[in-house]
Nucleic acid binder design. Structure first.
Length: 258
DNA sequence: TATGGCCTGTGG
DNA sequence: CCACAGGCCATA
C-alpha cells in the first residue's frame, strides 16, 4: 500500500537485498503480470543488479548492462525476500538471485506492474517534480496548479502536477496546511501553496522516519486524519469528516481546514 | 474533467 | 450482501 515514503522504504530494502547479485530465474504466478510481454524481463536473467532506486512511486532496478526493471506497486504491492523457495501468500512473481536469495512480488490485488526499459532509453515523461525534490518551491508548484479546474485534493493526486503524493498523504498534507480539500486548485495563493508544500514534506518526512525499514503495514495511528472519521481532530477537537472526491475518500477537519 | 475497469480481500 | 481499499489508464 505504497505512496512515496513506502516505495522509498521498499526500494532501499530491495537495494540492500539484491544489489551486486545476478538474476537467475523469473517465474510468473499471476496472469495479470503477463499482459504486455514478459520476454524482456526474462531476458534479464544472467545479468547483475547494479542498484535499486525510487522515482516517484516507481522503483527502478538498474542492471549492469544499463537495462532497467521498472516496478509499480499500485495499491497493494510489496517485496518479500526469503531464503527458501516457499512462496508467501499472494506472491505474484518469483525472482531468484545468486546466493540463493528469493525475491517475491507480493500483491493481493494483482494490480502491480513490471516492465523493462532497454539500455539507453530515457524514462517516460508526463510526471511532475518528485514530491520530495528539495529544489521544488511554492512558485513552481503554484504554476503547475494554475488553470486546473479541479479541487486541490484531486490536483495533488495528479502525478503530472507533483509525483509521489497519494490519497493518504494528500489528506495529511492539507490537514497540516489547514486547507479545505475542496478548494479550487487554481485559486490558491502562493502562501497557501507554500503551506501545502510544507505539509507534504512534514507528513512524508514523518512517515519515512516511522517506517524505518519496511514496517508500513502496521500503524494507522501515524496519520492525523486518514481513516479517522468521527475521531476528534488532534489540533482543534472537532470530529474528522469523510467526503468523497473523484471516487476516493478524503478525510479532513471542517473546523480548522479552510 | 469525470468515469469505469483492472483485481482480490476485508469489514460492516 | 454491499462498500471500500495507500493507483493508474483508457475512454467518453
Amino acid at each position: 500500500m505504497p505512496e512515496l515514503p513506502e516505495v522509498e522504504a521498499a526500494a532501499r530494502y530491495l537495494h540492500d537485498a539484491i544489489s551486486g547479485r545476478t538474476l537467475r530465474q523469473v517465474t510468473w504466478l499471476h496472469a495479470s503480470l503477463q499482459r504486455g510481454g514478459t520476454a524482456a524481463v526474462e531476458a534479464l536473467v544472467g545479468t547483475r543488479v547494479h542498484r535499486v532506486h525510487r522515482v516517484a512511486k516507481w522503483q527502478e532496478i538498474v542492471f549492469a548492462d544499463g537495462a532497467v526493471l521498472v516496478v509499480h506497486f499500485r495499491m497493494t504491492g510489496d517485496w518479500s525476500v526469503t531464503p527458501s523457495v516457499e512462496a508467501p501468500r499472494h506472491a505474484r512473481a518469483h525472482f531468484t538471485f545468486s546466493g540463493g536469495r528469493h525475491l517475491w512480488l507480493v500483491d493481493p490485488r494483482a494490480l502491480a506492474r513490471v516492465e523493462v526499459r532497454a539500455p539507453g532509453v530515457e524514462a517516460r515523461g508526463r510526471t511532475g517534480p518528485d514530491a520530495l525534490d528539495p529544489t521544488l518551491d511554492a512558485a513552481t508548484l503554484r504554476a503547475r496548479l494554475a488553470g486546473r479546474r479541479i479541487s486541490v485534493k484531486a490536483a495533488l493526486l495528479d502525478q503530472s502536477v507533483i509525483a509521489g503524493v497519494g490519497n493518504i498523504y494528500a489528506a495529511e498534507s492539507l490537514w497540516h496546511a489547514r486547507i479545505d480539500p475542496r478548494t479550487s486548485a487554481q485559486q490558491l495563493s502562493k502562501a497557501r501553496v507554500a503551506r501545502i508544500l510544507d505539509g507534504i514534506r512534514w507528513c512524508m518526512g514523518l512517515a519515512l522516519d516511522q517506517i524505518g525499514r519496511h514496517q508500513y503495514g502496521t500503524a494507522t495511528d501515524r496519520f492525523a486524519v486518514y481513516d479517522r472519521e468521527g475521531e476528534p481532530c488532534s489540533r482543534c477537537g472537532a470530529p474528522i469528516a469523510r467526503i468523497t472526491q473523484g471516487q476516493r475518500s478524503t478525510y479532513w477537519c471542517r473546523r480548522c481546514q479552510r
